[in-house]
Amino acid sequence: MPLTRRQLFPAPLALALAGCGASSNKPAARGRGTADAPWRIGMSQCNLGEPWRVQMNRDLTAAAAAHPNIELIAKDAQNNSLTQRAHVEEFGQQGVDLLIISPKESAPLTRPVAQLYKAGTPVIVLDRAVQGDAYTTFIGADNRKIGEAAGKWCANILGGSGKIVELQGLMTSTPGQQRHEGFRAGLALAAHPELEVVFVADMQWLEPNARREMESALATQPQVDLVFAHNDPGAHGAYLAAKAAGREQDIRFVGVDALPHEGVAYVREGLLDATFAYPTGGAETIATAIKILKGEQVPKHIDLATKLFTRDNVDAGGEALGA
């Protein structure tokens, strides 16, 4: 069969790409950590389509801006593992002094990250892990601990007695499963016989779904004392449903994530009773990066502590809970 123009098209493209790779093969000069020759830090974010990750990049950029001796180069993999793998390779070609990566998924990114690390570039893995131990340090928060903190707070605020609605994040996702497990462990239903989870639904992290599920909960449950949603948009959706039913005064609303313009703002305005931060770790990451670049030792695993925001402490910046 003769080749058509369409079939031929990828060939020159591949050649061009191969050419680029060959020409930029020698690594660029490394930074020295001065304002003239700053350390260059490559940052690969898996998906800037999520507000929490946009916030993470903002926190990283803000923290980096305070240090003239580093330069942050941020890239967005748009939820594509192979794009992210290309980022890692590109940063390697560019000869960055340190890589920060928040991987989309562990399996496809473990090898590229390990190659870069073994070639001598320090790597900070943020929020989601890679397999093995071929990286400098992992920085992340623990969803299970956050769920547990929320569960304990809810059991306590209800005085050990009440009817609870749990609006879950996507239960096929690890954060959803861990927040759920932690929440149930924190509630300690066995120790609180008066405490009951009366309605459970998967709202897939989405506010419109949370509102729909909460409407169903309100239609079937004459008494609801507290709603725990696995994220703040879910809690907000539940609030809107309760408000439309005229029952928002009887119910406490608790969420997770505590983004400044989302959960924290909802608490400040009195819509939610509490939200538990899932920290982005922006400031800690930059501080750790500088330590590594200066040659200091850092732990292999850095656990980010959650923060509790309630109406009483929101203006004071929340209350840090132990990691």
Binding site: L48, G49, V54, H261, R268, E269, L271
Partner: peptide, 19 residues
């Protein structure tokens, strides 16, 4: 949509308005 919003949800809170 992402360009107009800068990737963030456009809310009254971001503008400093109350609900």
């Amino acid at each position: 949509a992402k360009q107009l919003s800068g990737g963030q949800k456009v809310t009254a809170y971001a503008a400093g308005l109350s609900p």
